[in-house]
């Protein structure tokens, strides 16, 4: 027997996995119940679109409501007149100038000015938009791009994260994320600076 730093008695032959699991088994308390989440407690009758827009602004992003998807490219042009290297994964947008596939080297996206990505839905309580790998082929795209545009349908806004997890419960699980606003930091004297390592701006187009 050797005594490890953590104080677990470990048989020389036993793997750390087994000795840890054994120690947990011996040391854990009696089984306590897993609580049910009662969604009624969190339910609110609020205007989802309005709340979502307010939340997007609170997290440092901007939301634009479009009457029709055909307005998308005009709107983008007005917002980012100087963007040259553009990746678009939104089929209604002809704005893309760089096409990517699963085989694209992520490092080559370093020079991308603007990425336009189809979001799956928005979350009213916090302004987050769920996007998954299927929507943008290369995982680093929404981070490495200088500016980011996410497009969601105005019917695809849920109240809170509890509902959001219901919406993604059946997804194919590879990589996905909630994006709320542009990348930011307050690590220098608590001063908020927009644009840390990820996209320096985020616009959510609600169609």
């Amino acid at each position: 027997m050797v005594i490890l730093m953590s104080g677990i008695k470990k048989d020389k032959k036993m793997s750390s996995r087994d000795s840890i699991l054994k120690a947990v088994k011996n040391n854990k308390p009696e089984l306590l119940p897993l609580p049910e989440i009662d969604l009624d407690v969190f339910n609110e009758d609020i205007n989802l679109l309005e709340t979502f827009i307010k939340s997007v602004e609170l997290v440092g992003g901007r939301a634009k409501v479009l009457n029709s998807i055909s307005d998308l490219d005009n709107e983008i042009k007005a917002l980012y007149p100087n963007a040259k290297q553009i990746v678009s994964s939104v089929k209604e947008s002809d704005f893309g100038t760089v096409s990517i596939s699963k085989d694209t080297d992520p490092h080559s996206l370093e020079t991308i000015d603007l990425a336009i990505i189809q979001g799956e839905f928005g979350v009213a309580e916090n302004g987050a938009v769920w996007i998954s790998e299927n929507d943008f082929s290369i995982r680093v795209l929404p981070f490495i791009t200088n500016d980011l545009i996410l497009v969601i349908s105005k019917d695809a806004i849920c109240l809170h994260l509890h509902d959001a997890y219901k919406l993604i419960s059946k997804r194919e699980r590879t990589f996905g994320l909630f994006v709320a606003g542009p990348s930011k930091t307050a690590d220098i004297e608590q001063c908020l600076v927009i644009g840390a390592h990820g996209a320096v701006s985020l616009t959510v187009m609600v169609v």
Binding site: K102, A128, F143, L161, F175, F178, A180, P182, S183
Partner: peptide, 18 residues
């Protein structure tokens, strides 16, 4: 943590990229 509604990125890693 900071009074934010949520962090900017909440990334869910399930499978490694190809």
């Amino acid at each position: 943590a900071t009074g934010q509604l949520i962090t900017t990125y909440s990334s869910h890693f399930n499978k490694p990229a190809p």
